[in-house]
Design a protein around this nucleic acid. Structure first.
Length: 852
RNA sequence: GCCCGGGUGGCGAAACUGGUAAACGCAUUGGACUUAAAAUCCAACGGCUAUAUGCCUUACGGGUUCGAAUCCCGUCCCGGGCACCA
C-alpha cells in the first residue's frame, strides 16, 4: 500500500468505479424500501459556490447513509435554468440567455462530478428545456379550465425611463437600479393562480409534516395567516354606496373614529378629481417600491377625503382618510380605525388630531391607559352602549349577531395568504400558454409546447417578446400572451418530474407513485415559505389531476445554514468601500490568537475588518470550491463542510480548518498503511487492558455516531471518528490482539466515514481487504459487551456543586452509592455541621446531597 | 414594521435534550525528530486570585428547581424571510 495519501488519484479511481458499475442509477423496485433524497437544484449562475457544496454534501451524506442502511435510493440533480441573472448577463455581455445558461450548466455539472456526489444523471433536467416546461404549460391550461387560473389587476414596480417592470431586487432606495429613475407603482393585468382555494388544506396539513423543522412550520402557518373576524359595511354619507371592511377586533368597533382607504381606492380617486391636495397625496403614494418591508417601514401618512362614513351601529359620521399603509390589493382596500386600541391607528390619530375613544379596559382593573400608546389587549367593553360590560370574546359574537340581523355584517374567515401572481413581463422564462382573441377574449393554447424563441437580443428596456411579432402575432388577428411564468412555477414541481424525467406522453407516470413523496429534502432556510409553500400547493394541484396519490411532496425537510466568511475593506474619501478577498489579506493575531488586524499582502498596508458575513460577490469574501478541491481533494472539502458546523447552523469559513480536515484524513491513511499487512494475518488472541480500553472507546463513540446519523448531526459523527482514530493510534499492530482490534476499528471508521469522505473510504476498504464496495457493506453495530464496566464513577454534588467523585461497583444498590458519596472526604468537609435533608441519585451518573 | 431563528473559551463547536460546561478540531505556546524548514509525534491551553479538595463563568436582568447553557418572563445584539432574487 502506498505510504502517501494522494487524493487526486484515489478520487478519480473511485469515481470511475461508480460510473462503471452504474452505482447511482436508481431503478423502481417495489420489493425494496425506497428512499428519495433531494437537494434543492441550483440556479446555473456560472460556478459552484460554497453554499452549493455544503447543500449537496449534506444531501449526498444522507443519500449514501440511507443506501448503506439497505434502501433503494434515488438522488437526482437538475437545473433551475430560467431567471433574471441570465437576462442581466445578456445585457452586460451581449450573450443570449440560453447560451449563457447552458454553458454554465456544463461548467457546474463538471464541478459536481469532481465532488463525487452520487447522482443518477440519467434523470437530469433543465427547466428551460421545452420537454420540461411543456407540462407546466399543460397544467396551466387545466387550471384555466377549472377556474383556478384567472386574470386580475396587480401592482408592479414600473421604471418610467426603461419602460419596464422591475423586480423588487432591482429597486434600490425607491429607484430603478439601471436608470436611477424614481420607481412608480403601476396596476397591470396579470395571471394569478388561486392558491387561496387551498389555504385551509395547506394550513391543516402542516400538522402532518412531522419531519419538518418546527420554525418552518410556524412560518408557513403565520404566512397563511388564518383569522376569524367580521366583515362589515359602513355607509357613505350622501351616497347609496357602502364601504366593506374586515376586522379581527369587532369588539373595538364602538371606538371607531375614522375609516382609512388605500390611496388607489376608487373612492379616493373619484374625490381627487376635484381636490388637488388629495390628488398630490395619491401621486406621492404611487412613488416607491411595492415590497411589504418598504410599505411597513415608511412613515404612516394620510389625507382627508372630505367625506364621511356612517358607523354601522351608532349611525354617527366618521371621516374617511386615504392612507399610504392601506393596500388596495389586500382585503377590501379599506379598514376601520380604532386609535384607542390599535397602535398604527393611534399614531395617525395623534398626527392628525383625530379623537381616540377608549372602549376596552383591562378586565382585572390593571393599567389600560391610552395616553402614550394604544391599549391593544383584550378586556371588558365600556362606553359601548348595549355591549357594555361584555368581555372582548362575548362582544365578538354579540356585535356580529347585531350586525348580521340588520344585514350590515357577517362573520368571516380570512387568510393573509394572497393568490399567486404568476405573470412576469420578462423574456427568459416559460411562455404562458394563452391566446388573446380579436374580440378581447382569451383561450388556452392547444398546441403545446409554446416554445420560447432562444435567439433574441435583450437590452434591458421594454419586453423583447412583445417586440417580436413572429412570436406574438398569430393568424386571424389573434395575439399570443407575451408574459412568462414566475420561475417559482418551474421549481414547484421539478421534484416530481425527476421520477418520470423521460416521459413524453404525460407530465408524470406511474413511476412517480413509486418514488413520491420525497423522503428527505435539503435546502436553505431562505426557502422556508415561498418555494416550499408553492411546491406544496403544486403537489395538491397535481394530486387533483390524478397524477400523484400522496398529499404532501416532502416528508422530511432539512434547512441548512449559510456559509459565511470574514470581510475586509478599505474606504476612500467619499466613503466608498473596496472589498478584499480574505485570501489576499495577511491577518495578525495576539499571543492568544485574538484578531488584531490585517494588511493587504500586495502592498503591506492596513485593511479594515468588516465582520463575518454570508459569502457573496459584493463583499468579495467567497472561496472557490474548485481551487480547494484542486489543492486538497474532494474528500477534504466534504469532510470540512460536514465537521465545522451542524447542518442547520451557519458555517464560518476558515482556511486553517480545512487544513485540519486534511490532516485527519492523512492520519487515517497513515494508520491504515502502517498496519495493512499485519491485519491480514490478524488472529484472535486474548485481550489486554489496552485492547479493552480501545474497544470500549470505539464502541462508545460508535453508539453516539449511530445516534447522530439518525438525528442528522453529522459534525459529531466526524468527532466520533476522530476519537476512534485517536484510540486506534494507541495500539501496536505487532501484537495479534491489537491487530484484530485495529481491523475491527478501521472497519467501523471506514463505514461511518463512507457517506462523508466516500473516495477514501472506498479505497481503504478495498486496500485492507474488508470487501469490494464499502457502500454495499452492512452498517456497523455496537458490541454492548465492549461497553460493560464493573466499576462506575459517580460525581458527587453538595447543594448542586461538584465536591467529589466516587467509584462504586456497577451492581451497587442505592444505599451503597449514597453511603459512598457521603463518606467522601471533600463531601464531608462541605456537609460538616449541616443536616442532610435529601440525597438525589441519578443512576450511573451523579449524586446530589442537599444539606442545610 | 411584522414573522422565524441564533448568542457557550482566542476561534469552529460539544454537552446523550434538566444532572461533572467546554468532547472533537483550529489557533497559540513548549518539547521531541531534523544541519534547517516542512511534515509528523508528545504536552499545556476559559477567567480570577491567596495556585486550592478555592472562587467565578454559557449575551444581559429576573424566576422555577435538590440541580438550568438547556424550562419560563423581560431586555439587548446578530442573522433569515416579507409575495417580481433564487
Amino acid at each position: 500500500m502506498q505510504s502517501e495519501y494522494d487524493p487526486a488519484a484515489i478520487e478519480t479511481a473511485a469515481q470511475q468505479y461508480w460510473d462503471a458499475n452504474r452505482t447511482f442509477r436508481a431503478l423502481e423496485d417495489p420489493g425494496r424500501e425506497k428512499f428519495y433524497c433531494l437537494s434543492m437544484f441550483p440556479y446555473p449562475s456560472g460556478r459552484l459556490h460554497m453554499g452549493h457544496v455544503r447543500n449537496y454534501t449534506i444531501g449526498d451524506v444522507i443519500a449514501r447513509y440511507q443506501r448503506m442502511l439497505g434502501k433503494n435510493v434515488l438522488q437526482p440533480m437538475g437545473w433551475d435554468a430560467f431567471g433574471l441573472p441570465a437576462e442581466n448577463a445578456a445585457i452586460k455581455q451581449g450573450i443570449p440567455p440560453s447560451r449563457w445558461t447552458r454553458a454554465n450548466i456544463e461548467t457546474m455539472k463538471g464541478q459536481l462530478a469532481r465532488l463525487g456526489f452520487g447522482y443518477d444523471w440519467s434523470r437530469e433536467l433543465a427547466t428551460c428545456d421545452p420537454d420540461y416546461y411543456r407540462w407546466e404549460q399543460w397544467l396551466f391550461t387545466r387550471l384555466m379550465e377549472k377556474g383556478l387560473a384567472y386574470r386580475a389587476k396587480a401592482t408592479v414596480n414600473w421604471d418610467p425611463v426603461d419602460q419596464t417592470v422591475l423586480a423588487n431586487e432591482q429597486v434600490i432606495d425607491g429607484r430603478g437600479w439601471r436608470s436611477g429613475a424614481i420607481v412608480e407603482k403601476r396596476e397591470i393585468e396579470q395571471w394569478s393562480v388561486r392558491i387561496t382555494a387551498y389555504a385551509q388544506e395547506l394550513l391543516d396539513a402542516i400538522d402532518s409534516l412531522a419531519g419538518w423543522p418546527e420554525q418552518v412550520r410556524t412560518m408557513q402557518r403565520n404566512w397563511i395567516g388564518r383569522s376569524e373576524g367580521l366583515y362589515m359595511l359602513f355607509g357613505i354619507e350622501g351616497s347609496d354606496e357602502v364601504l366593506g371592511i374586515y376586522t379581527t377586533r369587532p369588539d373595538t368597533v364602538m371606538g371607531v373614529t375614522y375609516v382609512a382607504v388605500a390611496a388607489e381606492h376608487p373612492l379616493a380617486c373619484a374625490r381627487a378629481e376635484h381636490d388637488p391636495e388629495l390628488a398630490a397625496f395619491i401621486d406621492e403614494c404611487r412613488r416607491g417600491g411595492t415590497s411589504e418591508a418598504e410599505l411597513e417601514t415608511m412613515e404612516k401618512k394620510g389625507q382627508r377625503l372630505g367625506l364621511n362614513a356612517i358607523h354601522p351601529i351608532t349611525g354617527e359620521p366618521v371621516p374617511i382618510f386615504a392612507a399610504n399603509f392601506v393596500l388596495m390589493g389586500y382585503g377590501t382596500g379599506a379598514v376601520m380605525a380604532v386609535p384607542a386600541h390599535d397602535q398604527r391607528d393611534w399614531e395617525l390619530a395623534q398626527r392628525y388630531g383625530i379623537p381616540k375613544r377608549q372602549v376596552i379596559v383591562a378586565a382585572d382593573g390593571g393599567d389600560s391607559g391610552i395616553a402614550t400608546g394604544a391599549y391593544v389587549d383584550k378586556g371588558v367593553l365600556v362606553d359601548s352602549g348595549p355591549f357594555d360590560g361584555l368581555t372582548s370574546e362575548q362582544a365578538f359574537d354579540a356585535i356580529a349577531d347585531w350586525l348580521a340581523e340588520r344585514g350590515r355584517g357577517e362573520q368571516r374567515v380570512n387568510f393573509r395568504l394572497r393568490d399567486w401572481g404568476v405573470s412576469r413581463q420578462r423574456y427568459w422564462g416559460c411562455p404562458i400558454p394563452v391566446i388573446h382573441t380579436p374580440d378581447g377574449g382569451i383561450r388556452p393554447e392547444s398546441d403545446l409546447p409554446v416554445r420560447l424563441p432562444e435567439d433574441l437580443v435583450v437590452d434591458g428596456s421594454g419586453s423583447p417578446l412583445k417586440r417580436m411579432e413572429t412570436f406574438s402575432n398569430l393568424p386571424e388577428g389573434e395575439i399570443r400572451e407575451t408574459d412568462t411564468f414566475d420561475t417559482f412555477f418551474e421549481s414547484s414541481w421539478y421534484y416530481a418530474r425527476y421520477c418520470s424525467a423521460d416521459c413524453d406522453t404525460a407530465m408524470l407516470d406511474e413511476r412517480a407513485r413509486y418514488w413520491l413523496p420525497v423522503d428527505q429534502y435539503i435546502g436553505g432556510v431562505e426557502h422556508a415559505v415561498l418555494h416550499l409553500l408553492y411546491a406544496r400547493f403544486f403537489h395538491k394541484l397535481m394530486r387533483d389531476e390524478g397524477l400523484v396519490d400522496c398529499d404532501e411532496p416532502f416528508a422530511r425537510l432539512l434547512t441548512q445554514g449559510m456559509v459565511v466568511a470574514e470581510t475586509w475593506y478599505r474606504e476612500d474619501a467619499e466613503g466608498v468601500r473596496t472589498w478584499y478577498n480574505p485570501a489576499e489579506v495577511e491577518v495578525s493575531r495576539d499571543d492568544k490568537g485574538k484578531l488584531l488586524g490585517g494588511v493587504l499582502k500586495a502592498d503591506g498596508r492596513a485593511v479594515i475588518f468588516g465582520g463575518v458575513e454570508k459569502m457573496s460577490k459584493s463583499k468579495n469574501n467567497g472561496v472557490d470550491p474548485e481551487a480547494l478541491i484542486e489543492r486538497y481533494g474532494a474528500d477534504t472539502v466534504r469532510l470540512y463542510t460536514i465537521f465545522t458546523a451542524p447542518p442547520e447552523q451557519s458555517l464560518e469559513w476558515s482556511d486553517e480548518g480545512v487544513e485540519g480536515a486534511a490532516r485527519f484524513l492523512r492520519r487515517l491513511w497513515t494508520l491504515a498503511a502502517g498496519c495493512a499487512e499485519a491485519l491480514q494475518s490478524a488472529a484472535t488472541a486474548d485481550a489486554d487492558d489496552a485492547v479493552t480500553a480501545a474497544r470500549r472507546e470505539i464502541h462508545r463513540a460508535l453508539k453516539k455516531a449511530l445516534f447522530d446519523y439518525e438525528r442528522q448531526q453529522f459534525n459529531t459523527v466526524v468527532s466520533g471518528c476522530m476519537t476512534m482514530v485517536n484510540a486506534l493510534y494507541k495500539l501496536d499492530a505487532g501484537k495479534p490482539a491489537h491487530a484484530a482490534t485495529l481491523r475491527e476499528g478501521l472497519g467501523i471508521v471506514l463505514r461511518l466515514l463512507a457517506p462523508i469522505a466516500p473516495h477514501l473510504a472506498h479505497h481503504l476498504w478495498r486496500e485492507l481487504e474488508l470487501g469490494d464496495d464499502v457502500l454495499a457493506a452492512p452498517w456497523p453495530r455496537v458490541d454492548e459487551t465492549a461497553l460493560a464496566q464493573d466499576i462506575v464513577r459517580y460525581v458527587v454534588q453538595v447543594n448542586g456543586k461538584v465536591r467529589g467523585k466516587v467509584q462504586v461497583p456497577a451492581d451497587a444498590g442505592r444505599d451503597a452509592i449514597e453511603a459512598a458519596a457521603l463518606a467522601d472526604a471533600n463531601v464531608r468537609r462541605f456537609t460538616a455541621g449541616k443536616a442532610v435533608h435529601k440525597v438525589i441519585v441519578v443512576p450511573n451518573k451523579l449524586v446530589n446531597v442537599v444539606a442545610k
